[in-house]
Structure formats: C-alpha cells, structure tokens
Design a protein around this nucleic acid. Structure first.
Lengths: 353, 353
DNA sequence: TTGTAGGCGTTATCAA
DNA sequence: TTGATAACGCCTACAA
C-alpha cells in the first residue's frame, strides 16, 4: 500500500508536475511506511504519534529534506501561520521598538509577521484589515483604538486573537496593551509646574490620536493650575523631526515670548528645541525648561541631559505578542487589558532651581 | 451545468462547511452563469475575457462581496503574493528608511511584505531564507552581500527575483542596489584631511560588514596620507547608540589625547560625540572635527551643525522593490546592478579654519 | 494510536 | 474566448 503511494507520487514522477518537484507529505509517508495523516500529526504534535513511527518519520523527513508547504497548510486548515501587524508608521522609533518586541517574542515559532503601514489613516487601516483578514491570519495586532466602525466590526468577528496596542481603554475589541497618553501628558506637565515653570508651552507635530491625548493631559494640568492659555500650544500636522522641533520653538517664541518651558510631543522635537536654544543662546533649564516624550537613549546624554517620559515600547510589542500566543495555545489570558504605565525621567533640562 | 454548480456549492450549503461561509469563486461563477475558471481569468487578467462576461462577473463579485483566497491561490499557482524582506535590524533607522521605501513602492499592489530580522547573523539569515523560500515568495530582498555559501546557493535557485541591497558588488546573486561603503568611508576621511585635521580617529560600533568596509575606506585614505595609526581606531561590537558615541570618544581621547577629529560610523555616534565634547568643553570644530554617517535630519540642525555622508536609504528600498516588480511584470531590467552613490554634506563641525 | 475519505478554493492544462 | 478536469499539498472529520 505504502509502496503504491511511492510509485504513484514519488519524487521522480512528481518532478514533472506543477509543484516543481518538492517532496510532499505523501513522499515522506511512503518512505516511512505510514499514512500521510500520521506524518502530518507527527509534525504538528509529536505526542500524538508513537515513538516508533515518529522516529521513522523523522528519518524520512531528513532524507527527503521535506519542508511543509505553508500555503497548502493554510488552505486545508483555514488558518495561515501569519500574524498581521498594523502600525501607522515604519520609521517612527516608537513603532520600530514595538515591532522589535513583537519579533523577539515570536522567536523561532513558525509564525511569520506581515506588517501593514496605515500611514496614520483609519481608512487605510480598514483596507489593510480587510486584506489581512482575507488570509485568515493566526492573530492580529493593531496600533491604537481609533478604528472606524467598519474596522471594529471586522475585528470583532475576525475569528482570531486581536490585540490593540499603545493605549488604554475600557472597551477593547479583544485584548489591549498600552498606557495612558493623557496621564503621561498630564504628569509631564505637572512635573514642569512643580519645577517652577509657569508659561509652559506644548509643542506637537503630526498630532495623531495619541498626541492629541497627551495634549489633553497637558491642558488638564494647566487648567487645574489656572495657567492654561491656548496661545501656549503650537502644533502642526507635519510629521515630526528634529529640525521641526527647532522651528516650532522659534514660532512659539515669536508669538509668545515669555514661554519659559516646553513639553514636547516626542524626543525628536525636544532635541530640536534644545539645539534651537543653543543657537539662540537661551539658557536651559534656567530660561527654558524642556521635557520630551519616550525617553530615547540620547536624552540621558544630551547636553544638558533632557527630561523625558519613558514609555514601554518594546514591552508593549513583547507582551502583545505573548498574549496572542497564549490565546492561540488555548491558555487563559488572565488580564486582557494591560496598562504598562510610563515613568517620568527628571533630568537637568527641567532643574530650574 | 452552471446551475448544478450553484445547487451543489451555493452559499447556503457552503456556510456549514470548513471554510466558514465565505463566498468562493464557484459562487461567483454560479451567479454570473459562467465557469469558475472564467471568473479566475476575469479577476487576474480582464483582457482575456469578453466584455460581456466581465460585466456579469464583476456584478456577481460585488453582490457576493467575493474576495479571492490568497492561500488557495498560492497553493494552486505555486506562488504566494508575498515579498520576503530580510534585514539585520528593525530599529536601525537605516533599515527603517529602506523598508519604508519598499512599502511605498508596493503601493496597493496585492503583494504583501513579510519581514525577517537576521540580527546581523548570516546563519540566522540562512534559516530565514529557507523559511521564506518554503512559501514560494514572489520575490526576495536581502540586505548585504555577505551571505553564507548555502544561502547564496538557495538564492540562486530561488526561482523568483532576488535583490541584494545596501552595497555594491560585481557578482550579485541576481540584482543589486546600493552604494560603496568603502568609497564613502574614504571620502569622509579625505574631507577631514582636506579640512586640515591630521590625527583623525575612527569610531565605530556593531562593526557589521558595512561598517568594516567604511573602516577600510578610512584606513585607505589615512594610509595614503601617511597618517594611519591603529591607535586612532576605536571600535566595539556593541550595538550603536548616542550614549555609546560619547563613551567611545572618551575612551579614544584617554588613549590618544591628540586626536583632532573623528569619523563616526553613524550619526548616532556622532551626536554622542558632540554631546561629550560639549560636556568636556572641547571646541567643535576647532579642537575636534566631527563627521557622521547617513545624514539624518538632526545633523543639519545640531549645534554646531554636523558634517555627514548622505546615503540613499529610502531610494534603495524604493528601487529594489521596483526592480523586483519589473522582473515580475516580465519587463527587462536594464541595470541589474545599481550604484546609487552617496553625498558628503560638509557642515560646521568640520570647518576648522 | 492510526488510517480512510474527501474537501479546502484556486489555477494549470488541455480541449472545444 | 470559454470550459471541463485534474491537480496543488495538506488537514478535518470520522472510523477502526
């Protein structure tokens, strides 16, 4: 019987067929003298096959150099070993760190990552969710909580684990890992207030939903202190960059000369602000306090060292993938909503007195 | 006949099957009153189907909300609509820019990107190439030219377009887009020499093959000037960072106090060097010249502005994907080896006199 | 624990 | 230009 399979589907004959002569599970089965399904089982869950057959199968796999075809597997099982990851930007260090965390957690599991770049557009995100779901992915990780209604509906019925990341919320589609940008923005501002600054400006670029929430946190703290003034806020939809930070500070000072500190939307802007201060001979932190966001490595060695809010970017990627894997493994996910928090790193740039 | 198909494989019955009730090509065929293969053709190459049928098919596709199953497609055609991209790092801005270029060129083509992180390891690269080839990808883009022999062999017989990126070479596996790191390192050093610096140090981290070639270029220029001294070279296998730049400069100066300029392996290191100079009150560019590599945005606004070598990162991603797509479209690729060059950006940090 | 039967949804092949 | 048929390689369902 097994011999029949070999003679009918052996390598030699195979080579002339469509597939291009790669050994198939049937070839392995023939060589090992078992049924194809047994090979399939031995490969996916060795414990379901006797040690004896397992050995024969392993040997056959090795001699033939058999590699399972992920496409055939996906078709037959209605599940691709692919994790879709949707981020708004590929160059933003924030997401680069997140993605690294995701990859590292994956290790050498057989899952592959497919990344989509939404360019900060909910509609593009919607399109990509449709594309990704069309492949019946093993799991989906999406940045943010500002999906369109259509997207949200699609995700709810995705039939696979879905992890939203980077934020907190009470009504996640499925699972969620992140931190509160509002709280982070608030804490940074409170820190500047406590350091003695009063005319604290907000400098922001891109102004995606997370930036908006940080701005809201800033505003909340400023209003509470009775110090909010809309003229203190300088934002632009332009993508963030170091050079932009300098420009925005110049703009802000031109409009409101008595600004005595700035909370920057991210560290690149903060670095640009610092350079602009050097250039304009504005003393930091005496005449101008600076607080960044994310706490990139450079902040602790800048001159002067720059205060920032440390965010758990790598950890978010890492934990989100972990949650998805746990769910896939059938384990209970005890905390489907994870707030990883943040940590203000006070440094010289806000040490006014 | 078509009616038979409908009654046998229509939606109602389908819904109870494995696939989960998604409309299939047979459903569309039934509704449009044509054979499945005709739908397949209409979708992939409308010109091969009469306008009449095309209209009926389009209508059926719309009413049913049909979306082709990429897994079935991949299995039947032995080709997945996936482009494998192998990079040594996901957080290095260099590769982030390259990957962005790749994505942008892809646009809304139906191809998906699958990225692999080789962690600067040729063996890990080999493993990933095997994994990726197992999916019969549409194309492969790999960073560098330092593949193992096994990898090179695999790539040569991949049966799909392969683009090596980031470097130049005369014997690419298939296609190649990049620039000469040796020449770039040489030119940066020559620039420092022409600016009047003599005891020019080299500061490098990670020291992957491309860094090594830049170092070789530096050495070549220094030897030509009769100024090479191995003590001027400070490197570490540690991954690069801003803070590391400062440390390495301190190390270098502790060993060789009369260093009067440094060519930094990348801009992060250069920024760290700049901050360290500020901190140690070393005048830039008078007492210390600084030249970075890559020319990130921050270089032109640093204080003082920092000289660097501009590299075509985005362009490399963009062009490599373009070449692969051209090949896939059956077009002749006129220049399978593309040297995109680089450009030295001289700024204040090397304006000694 | 192992095997049989049949299907997953699409495309290549060959014929009309 | 259109269609019938048979893969593509694996897995689910069910049976032994």
């Amino acid at each position: 019987m097994a011999d029949d399979i070999v003679s009918e589907q052996g390598r030699t004959e195979r080579a002339s067929r469509r597939g291009g002569g790669r050994p198939t599970i049937a070839d392995v089965a023939g060589l090992a003298g078992v049924a194809a399904i047994t090979v399939s089982r031995a490969l996916r869950d060795p414990s379901r096959v006797s040690a004896e057959l397992r050995a024969q199968i392993d040997a056959a796999v090795t001699t033939l150099g058999y590699v399972p075809d992920p496409n055939a597997r996906a078709l037959a099982s209605s599940r691709a070993d692919v994790v879709g990851v949707l981020v708004p930007s590929l160059t933003n260090v924030v997401f680069a760190d997140v993605v690294r965390g995701i990859y590292d957690e994956l290790g050498s599991s057989r899952l592959q990552i497919q990344m989509g770049n939404t360019h900060y557009s909910p509609l593009e995100e919607e399109r990509l969710v449709k594309v990704f779901l069309g492949q019946r992915p093993a799991a989906l990780i999406v940045a943010g909580i500002d999906q369109t209604d259509v997207t949200r509906k699609l995700l709810r019925t995705a039939g696979c684990p879905v992890v939203q990341i980077m934020e907190t919320a009470t009504d996640p589609v499925d699972m969620l890992v992140g931190f509160s940008h509002f709280d982070a923005g608030r804490e940074a501002t409170v820190h500047l207030l406590e350091a003695g600054y009063r005319r604290i400006g907000f400098i922001g670029a891109r102004m995606d939903p997370r930036s908006q929430r940080r701005l809201a946190g800033y505003r909340d703290a400023m209003e509470e202190a009775g110090l909010f003034d809309p003229r203190l806020v300088t934002t632009t939809p332009t993508p963030s960059s170091v050079s932009l930070g300098g420009q925005l500070l110049a703009d802000a000072l031109a409009r409101v000369p008595d600004i005595d500190a700035v909370f920057c939307n991210n560290d690149d802007l903060a670095l640009g602000v610092l350079f602009e201060c050097h250039r304009a001979a504005i003393a930091v932190p005496r005449r101008m306090g600076i607080c960044g966001f994310n706490d990139l490595d450079m902040m602790r060695v800048a001159f002067p060292t720059l205060t920032s809010v440390r965010t758990p970017r790598y950890e978010i990627g890492h934990r989100s993938m972990r949650m998805a894997l746990d769910r896939l493994a059938g384990n209970e996910v005890t905390a489907p909503v994870l707030d990883l928090g943040f940590e203000l790193q006070a440094r010289e740039s806000t040490r006014r007195r």
